[in-house]
């Protein structure tokens, strides 16, 4: 039971952070596509901006790893 709860917690940690990242990237991606259409020279900056919300899922992943390995 306890192991199951730990697994569920790890899944929730990474699942919700993935959803948050996906939502943020969808917004940034849409704005970025518009930006590149008008100013193609900003392509590199847009790609970097798109990578910024990945911190959330990375932190979610770290929490999940900590739950699984230290639980």
């Amino acid at each position: 039971m306890e192991k199951g709860l730990l697994m569920l917690s790890a899944a929730l940690a990474i699942g919700f952070s993935s959803l948050a990242t996906a939502w943020a990237q969808s917004r940034i991606g849409a704005a970025g596509a518009g930006t590149i259409a008008e100013k193609p020279e900003l392509r590199g900056t847009v790609i970097i901006m798109l990578a910024i919300p990945e911190t959330m899922v990375i932190l979610g992943f770290v929490i999940a790893v900590m739950i699984l390995f230290r639980g």
Partner: peptide, 9 residues
């Protein structure tokens, strides 16, 4: 610092 966990991920 925790953001560097992406290296592992």
């Amino acid at each position: 610092v925790f953001s560097y966990a992406r290296l592992m991920a």
